[in-house]
């Protein structure tokens, strides 16, 4: 089968399964062995994959909201690409969570039919961005942290998690370069861009503490060789953020703890009103038309 261009290839088909939305998509882990390794608690593995999957899903949605609003077309493409990579990671992780859970749910059930209190992402992922500087500050922190975590998971005893992580590390390396270069460009730019980049770093800083807050699920799984403890990524994240701030000519913000975790943490399902707004948009169509395909 050969076509002169992609459009000919797309329109050649007699069936339109490829245009299916939502539940029409095939299992992204089709054919990947689904066993939970011996000695690993399946409930913990489910909870951990939900945490990592929800981080990516919610952050991806926030990035998608920037499409048509970014300052340049090239940045819309960059943000859409990063959002797509994170969405792919989310699909794999939510599918792995559903497999480990063994309750007959799938990625769509987990993405579209869970309530806010059942989401397990860190609050950093759900925050709204006041401007582009806030976006790149938040993106830098998020992808720097996620790269450090997934890099540690490449050696996980769960082979599916290890494979998802190894793939994600390559993608996140590009994402981090993009976010870091924007922080440097704005921080080291005009007086106005410097002022706004500095304000954005200051605003995101209190959300960092939650990323490293010890949690029993990753800590137990770390003992079983499956996860990395929540606190383990801190040194690498601190080093990278210091490198970027220095290159950007930005003073290091202070107060890395508190703030965002007042009243509980996202890992335990305690979220802000920002998540309700995200879910209303993200889940609205799926909930209004259960099982819908088009």
């Amino acid at each position: 089968m050969s076509f002169d261009d992609a459009y000919a290839a797309l329109t050649d088909h007699q069936d339109d399964t490829r245009w299916a939305y939502g539940t029409g998509f095939s299992d992204p882990l089709a054919g990947v062995p689904t066993d939970v390794p011996g000695g690993v608690d399946a409930a913990d593995l489910t909870a951990y994959c939900l945490m990592l999957g929800d981080d990516a899903l919610i952050m991806s949605h926030r990035l998608q909201q920037w499409v048509t609003r970014a300052p340049e077309l090239e940045d819309e493409m960059a943000l859409a690409n990063i959002a797509l990579d994170l969405l792919g990671q989310a699909r794999l992780l939510l599918t792995r969570a559903a497999q480990a859970e063994g309750a007959g749910r799938d990625e769509d059930d987990l993405a579209f039919r869970r309530d806010a209190a059942d989401f397990r992402h860190v609050r950093l992922a759900e925050r709204a961005d006041a401007d582009f500087a806030h976006l790149v500050a938040r993106l830098l922190v998020f992808v720097t942290w996620r790269l450090a975590v997934l890099d540690g998971l490449r050696g996980s005893r769960d082979p599916v998690l290890a494979a998802i992580a190894a793939k994600g590390v390559k993608e996140l390396t590009y994402h981090r370069e993009y976010a870091a270069q924007w922080v440097v460009r704005l921080g080291d730019g005009t007086a106005e861009s410097h002022r706004r980049m500095r304000a954005a770093m200051h605003a995101v800083w209190p959300a960092i503490g939650e990323l490293f807050r010890p949690h029993p699920v990753p800590d137990r799984l770390a003992e079983a060789g499956v996860a990395v403890p929540a606190a383990a990524a801190r040194a690498e994240v601190d080093a990278v953020l210091s490198q970027v701030l220095a290159a950007a000519g930005l003073p290091p913000p202070t107060a890395t703890d508190g703030g965002a975790t007042d009243g509980g943490a996202g890992r335990d399902g305690a979220h802000t009103a920002a998540l309700d707004e995200i879910l209303a948009e993200m889940q609205g169509v799926a909930r209004a038309t259960p099982g819908g395909l088009w």
Binding site: L10, H13, P28, L84, R91
Partner: peptide
Amino acid sequence: VRITPTYSGCPAMEAIRADLIGA
């Protein structure tokens, strides 16, 4: 047939799967 995605979110995987089965 065993295939691997280029990127985690590669949207072409669905189309590739359908193309392989069809071919």
